[in-house]
Design a binder for these strands. Sequence first.
DNA 1: ACAAAAGTGTTGCGCCTACACCCATGC
DNA 2: GCATGGGTGTAGGCGCAACACTTTTGT
Lengths: 252, 252
Amino acid sequence: MTQTDPTSIRVAVSTVIVALRPHPDTGAPALWMPLVRRVTDPFEGSWALPGGWVGPDEGLEDSAAARLRETTNVQPRYLEQLYAFGDVDRSPSRVVSIVYWALVHPDEAESVPDDWNVRWFLADEHPALAFDHDRIVEYALWRLRNKMSYSRIAQAFLGDRFTLAELRGVYEAVLGRTLDPANFRRQVERTDAILPTDETTSGDRHRPARLYRSNPDLAYADNGPLTDTTTRTTTGATTLATVLPPRSTSNR
Amino acid sequence: MTQTDPTSIRVAVSTVIVALRPHPDTGAPALWMPLVRRVTDPFEGSWALPGGWVGPDEGLEDSAAARLRETTNVQPRYLEQLYAFGDVDRSPSRVVSIVYWALVHPDEAESVPDDWNVRWFLADEHPALAFDHDRIVEYALWRLRNKMSYSRIAQAFLGDRFTLAELRGVYEAVLGRTLDPANFRRQVERTDAILPTDETTSGDRHRPARLYRSNPDLAYADNGPLTDTTTRTTTGATTLATVLPPRSTSNR
DNA sequence: ACAAAAGTGTTGCGCCTACACCCATGC
DNA sequence: GCATGGGTGTAGGCGCAACACTTTTGT
């Protein structure tokens, strides 16, 4: 069982952060992600995912959250482990990266600096990244699009109160196609994922829209027995199942 | 970004191996997993998941496969990364474990020794395990049960040729409930996941059953952009979608 | 003949799609 | 009044669950 000395492997965390912001051309909601510019040797000057080393006294998720706050000043609404990348040649030195993905809503996105070190990019128009980060981003987006259809993570993109049109906009941005407003409404209202409030919008040049809020008793996603032993009231139900495929059943 | 020196963290791999074998009481197919007895200090004498250290020149999945062969003599039909566990206190020393899960079919299960060092246990009746391995096993089984409903991994439990009744038995064992043979047949036949052969069973005291084989052009699961850059012909389609929930839509 | 599992037919129901239509507000 | 999106109604179709029924073997 015991192999060669393993102390030469270092452990890092990185996070793919995704937020919804207006597309510069169309104005429609689109996926954006903040990237950081590398200032040290491997891939110096390239853009890369925010991250850093795991401290000796940090759990992995804690470490991801800490590096996130340090590098991009984000405290995400949703944070989930994506995958562990550990190919031998993915870095000049041997590094195993535990990669997380995070969803932030617009308020939080504001706190991210947009300067020489950190910049927001459209998720599908980012420059070539350092290390194997291109592949990682691609996988994160694939996972996001899949998970959208069987969880409530769409809500993690929005603020406290939102209209059904805004929620639908999230789905449309992530799935890349329009959805029927009438049918979307019925599907999402049949679940208990969101709760209506008494408030409505106003000032638009059309009928006011009711504002909804996330059901606080439900987590954004059901990660099963992995639910942190803390006080998460994860019930496994009501997910707005089949927004996704008009075409034949596809894998996840 | 750079934190304290991270060289004190060691990286290990472990694997939850699952196979289908008859239940000792009922004879019906049931989930079994081989565990190894620890022979060194932390948790010496306890049962634990097979695994070991990641070598400096090994990729993570290669390492998992290698440790698997060394400890349990298994070359699994299906191997997928499950999760990275890295809580600070999960081991006396600081260890980050990249955990995989593997499915083996009966032939391969034969090659696993069943002796003082390695023993097969019913998946839901195993003894208390070393480290956080109880939690890991629980998560692996949850993932297996979920993934069963939107992938073809059930076939990884079976040999080259199998009847629809055998395939249905896999689903029934994993999901823990019976399925209607007629509806199951139609659902699975509508996909191109399995192909009929000319062969049939014989010797049973009832009508012979046609033998099927896995469609070699399809991977057991679609892991998206993570598909190893090698020659996997992963097409993303035809998964036998809704065997699962008679009750309200549940999370994954 | 009978048991038992393989395999086929049929019906009902729920959900999803598409699209027509009404409602309430700003201008 | 009119444009615009919010919100409701409704008909068609597909897929699944349930279960009756036929087929083919071994004993």
